[in-house]
Nucleic acid binder design. Sequence first.
DNA 1: AAATCTCATTTTTTT
DNA 2: AATGAGATTT
Length: 814
Amino acid sequence: MPFSLDTLNPPQRDAVTYSGDAHCLILAGAGSGKTRVLTHRIAWLIGQGVEPSAILAITFTNKAAAEMRERALALVQEHAEGLKLSTFHAFGARFLRHFATYAQLEPSFTIYGESEQKSLIKKVMTEMGLIGGESSELLESESKKSSTVVNEYMYTIMGWKEAGMSVETAHSEAKSRESQSIANVYEMYEKQLLANNAVDFAGLLLWPLHILKYYENVRARIQAKYRHILVDEFQDTNSVQLDLLGLLCGPSTQLTVVGDDDQSIYTWRGADPTAILEFSKRFGACEVFKLEQNYRSTQPILTCAGNLIACNEKRAEKRLWTSQEGGEKVHVVSYASDWDEAADVISQVIARHRNMRIPWQNIAVLYRKNSQSVSFERECSHNAVPYQVLGGTGFYEREEIVDLMAYLRVMVNPADMVAFRRIINKPARGIGEKTCDKLVELVRKKADFGKNPAEALLGLLADVVEGRCKIPRAGAKLVTGCQQLLALFERCEDWRNRAPRDTLLDILDETHFYDHLKKVTAKKGQEYDDAQERIQSLIQELDAHQAKSPNDLPGFLEDMSLIRPEADETRHAVNLMTIHSAKGLEFDLVYIVGAADGILPLERGGTCDIEEERRLMYVAMTRAKYVLTISYPEMSHEYGRQMVQTPSRFLDEMVRKGEESAIDRTDNGSAAQYTSPVPKLAWSRPQEREKPKEERRYFEDGGESLLSRAKKRSQAQNDFEADPVYEEASIDIRSDRDEGNAFVSPEVANIAGESTVAISKNGRPIGVGTRVQHKVHGRGVVVQIEKSGNDYKAMVAFRKAGIRTIIARFLEVF
DNA sequence: AAATCTCATTTTTTT
DNA sequence: AATGAGATTT
């Protein structure tokens, strides 16, 4: 056996080596080593002679899949050929590419995300006369905005699909006039999806389910293929996924599922926290293994988290324990406002990073909703703290990126009229809504006539160019526009055999995209350079994919729709994310912010699933290894309005009555006198860090202290193993400690407070530690700033060019 | 069809 | 506060 079972505790070992005929159900508390158990079980199975290709492991996120692959690979070395590891959705996509014809799809189908779904549903509703026209009863009677109605319809339909409801069932169960109308839209929407050769997220699960259900040959093949299916985060599997799992399992397939009902945070997506407890009802006999020893968090953190989750009624009773003793108390801090909260949390982050040498990437700020991130982002950038925001609206929702992706999608899937509508008039080709409808209608006609989608599209464009079709008010502009598109498609015809980046470059060139971009950004008052840079990043993404899988544009598009940018722990940056996206991760330091009633637990429209919110809080708390800080503002800004907040009820629940020993409260609220920006911490001052006793007590971590690990890490950084930019930044920040100041260097403090600020080319403040970009020298970090006449001179350490002095307004902040 | 202006809304969480 | 959809004008 190439790996050892000695590193496992007895229950873990039992679960890993279970060899009976029943299924294997592992109830694994937070931090109890479930990933370790899963990877070891995979390795163990392979060691027992199971073919890797007969193993399918399903995780909740792509990142978890990647991590699992890496760790399993380390255990089994080269014996992993053919091992399948993916999310439900990625599995569905791959399955569907393979069996596309069973769903009347081409293997080149497009995956629609939320925005594409929305525009398709909107289109359908317009065509059905539900919105847009004068006779739209919906709007008249209810006096609603059409966008609101579209949203309502969309969310209902998605909800139905997520619950596995077919069009037929939707029709038969529709009672009210409205749900009948929605069912009609649902039916049309499904037809349109097929016509576009597209599948939405729900479809990635529903189609495979359908195929497995009705085609026995496929089912037999698949069931024979997978002898072992392992499912991670089982508590978050929804009913469609359970059905799918049921069909993937043949009579001789063994299931291994791992989960924790206390960490179920996706009931809003159809998951049922009790499903894991009723596993055997559905899948038959199972052997149950319980992992209750926590290896992650200190005692106070576990105590508080345990007290909190014990308030839930619907749960299997269990208690996590740890052999670790001691540990810093859980901090509970109040602030006068959310802005104060952000400022102080970030200054604490800086202090901890400096004094405890905690690497940035081991620190996380967790919040309930994405909109809470802004104040923390601002504080980070003002204080030169490297950070990354996970989730939220990001890169792939930027207009120019979506547009370019739409071009690529039309190449791959010419039937995708949602993408076609997006690109047809970008850049402006004199084609408006009406003309566009007409064009799409004509393409469809050709397609119905038996032409393949590519022929239909190109044929139509040719018809327009040669005046062979009648389009009302067709002007010369339209003809030139279609000519241009035609030329582009011909030029890119060979996309299958080329690097996707070259296809993209052709698109950029042929459409004069940068000219268009210049106009658009100028109109909207956005930075043209930023947009340009984002396109460069897209090209980099294409190159990265090319290295993994050459000339695979469809694969790239699939990855882009399925994979969200996830936490990159190799980046030396503080992590800002929602609690949901923190699932499965761990950090040395965790700050849970905005712990006010109404935000966490979140309440909307007077409703609130308190047990789910409590589980969410539990998940957040158990992410922390060493220090957990929970804070709330007494007032917060929402939609520009100020809202008075009250502390979260969870703060009381996590402390047993008469027992306050696990927490440490600090009041920085409006009533409190402002004393010190940082609550008294044992090691907040450098001198005090010299007490070895205290240090050891808090840093003990399986023989290797956090401190020594941190030292090693910063050693590694000095060797330029990682991004040198961050390294330079942190060296610099450390150096100003000698100036006797607490946490913020004078220059940076100046930026935060005063109006005399060095301003970059893109209008952002520059301080010591700011990461900047220069046209000639590339990226670097500001190490010093001084005034020179009306300008500021910045000394910048560039990655390649070394230290140079540059006038601040020629630098860009990135 | 394109440009400009006004006003209303906003997601809670993710594949 | 910021963004986007609708109405209005050119």
